[in-house]
Design a protein around this nucleic acid. Structure first.
Lengths: 281, 281
DNA sequence: TTACATTTGGAATATTTATTTCAAAAATAA
DNA sequence: TTATTTTTGAAATAAATATTCCAAATGTAA
């Protein structure tokens, strides 16, 4: 029993965090699990019983007590107080979030808060504006595709990467077109009748993506577009397009709302695909 | 014993508040005291024991139990849960997550709203939790670098792409390491003394990125890490790391908050760089 | 006033919850 | 490999916490 004996355990949560960072590597496996869980879910530690927490972490109650003691606390209850204290006055009861948002508008803001606020607004607008049936139709198109080809450049590239990653994880075959060193015409030729082009493009619209969409539409290949404006050159009457507009902060546009929509689109596609598969059987 | 028997007590705090307003007049004197106290100090009700609370209110423990029962709860503990739920950062208790997801599966609008809500939560938490000085230090590191090398795989790849895109636009020379078909050791060799590695990694942490960080730290190359936990293997005492945690929706984690932080980091880097350039002149 | 109902506090009880103990398992060193 | 230390889980124990019960106090209607 050569425990990591700490004479003076961190009495406030903000001190506990760095303490765990420094000692994490030296902790036994189970104690590491607890540490990770505690840092990710401080509210659970604060509000639940040792039995309920240990079950969520996947360890025994004894381990929870050991964890607390290894830091230097008298026991689990002693440590729990620190977690409870950390959430005493901090949390805004959900309804008051908006108020605090507006209140903070006049006071001086950090750079980060500018961006978080812009992101929140963009997401709120996305939720409000998005056409549910358009989302469903787009998902259906993608779900029916043999292969989904994804294209997008510049600021859209992270979105392409994310959609590719998520779709593949969901078992939807997809290929990133942007990275390939072919001409647009060559790329378009890769798309067969039952494939779908998923094009992402934001202002200023790159000619490449636009060209690709044009060729595909001319070939009667289905196109699903994700863009920042229905007036965008890649959004047309005869395709399926989704719109998301990011709030601008001193010339910079984020991708928070866009990523949210992208995830939603991918998950919906996965769900529709799963339904189709079931129907076939 | 003609108690105010309520068959269906308010299950959420926001419903309890108006309930008490309506029934306040009909309550006995002591129960009124409890009601006033509870509305003014919900956090105390949520976090303390019945003995401690009743002492603060100036009543006996029995009165607390009676109060809870008069509203319709099974007992004090039952009522306490409602108060606890109101101060959780994560809105739903684990067990109810699946239900809510299945419920939402019928209408498309709510699928999106689940994701937007998760995104908003994540961004709110980011704003609240991020260490401003850590952000500044990380930006300074990146600003001083001759070249910023960016690494990250899987879910981190979109973040890599976005940081690369934004940094380049801001005039900060940066190179994406992930795409290169070199060994980690070879990649690490590319980094000179005055370069910085910007590593992005989320659970489950890929061995590659971790290895790269290890080599760089061994070579005394500065590392700035962006991760979902300060306990992640790529976060260490001797580097500069930023933390962002995305809320999960039925197994899917978005990137909304992460993208927000990435943009913020890039912009800050650009700003610091501009200041440095000015100082040189 | 008396008779009755309601409210309240205090103590006994039941229940829940944390802690300790100890033996088995796993890891480490020789 | 074996010996030794460390880590872990399960059960027993201790502590705490909530709840119930009952008698006293307070209020109310005749």
């Amino acid at each position: 029993m050569t425990k990591v004996i700490q004479v003076k355990p961190p009495r406030v949560f903000s001190d506990l965090k760095p303490w765990l960072q420094n000692h994490y590597q030296d902790l036994p496996k189970r104690l590491q699990s607890v540490a990770v869980f505690a840092m990710h879910n401080p509210d659970v530690i604060a509000l639940n019983t040792i039995a309920s927490i240990s079950e969520q972490v996947g360890v025994t109650p004894s381990t929870m007590v050991r964890f607390a003691k290894s830091i230097g606390y008298l026991g689990f209850s002693d440590m729990q107080m620190v977690f409870q204290e950390s959430m005493r006055h901090v949390p805004q009861p959900y309804s008051e979030r908006l108020n605090s948002m507006q209140r903070s508008a006049d006071t001086e803001q950090t750079v980060l808060s500018h961006f978080t606020q812009a992101a929140s607004e963009s997401i709120a607008r996305l939720e409000h504006n998005v056409d549910a049936s358009a989302l469903l139709k787009a998902s259906e198109q993608l779900a029916q595709a043999r292969v989904v080809y994804i294209a997008g450049q510049g600021r859209a590239e992270p979105v392409v990467a994310y959609l590719h990653y998520t779709l593949v994880k969901l078992g939807v075959q997809s290929v990133v077109l942007s990275g390939m060193p072919h001409s647009m015409a060559d790329k378009a030729r890769m798309l067969k009748e039952d494939d779908v082009l998923l094009a992402i493009s934001f202002s200023p619209y790159t000619a490449n993506t636009r060209e690709l969409v044009d060729i595909c539409l001319a070939n009667n290949t289905n196109v699903v577009a994700l863009t920042d404006s229905t007036l965008s050159p890649i959004a047309r009457g005869d395709d399926f397009h989704l719109e998301v507009l990011e709030e601008e902060v001193s010339g910079f546009r984020g991708l928070s709302a866009t990523m949210c929509l992208a995830l939603c689109l991918a998950v919906e596609t996965g769900r529709v695909r799963a339904e189709l598969d079931k129907a076939v059987k």
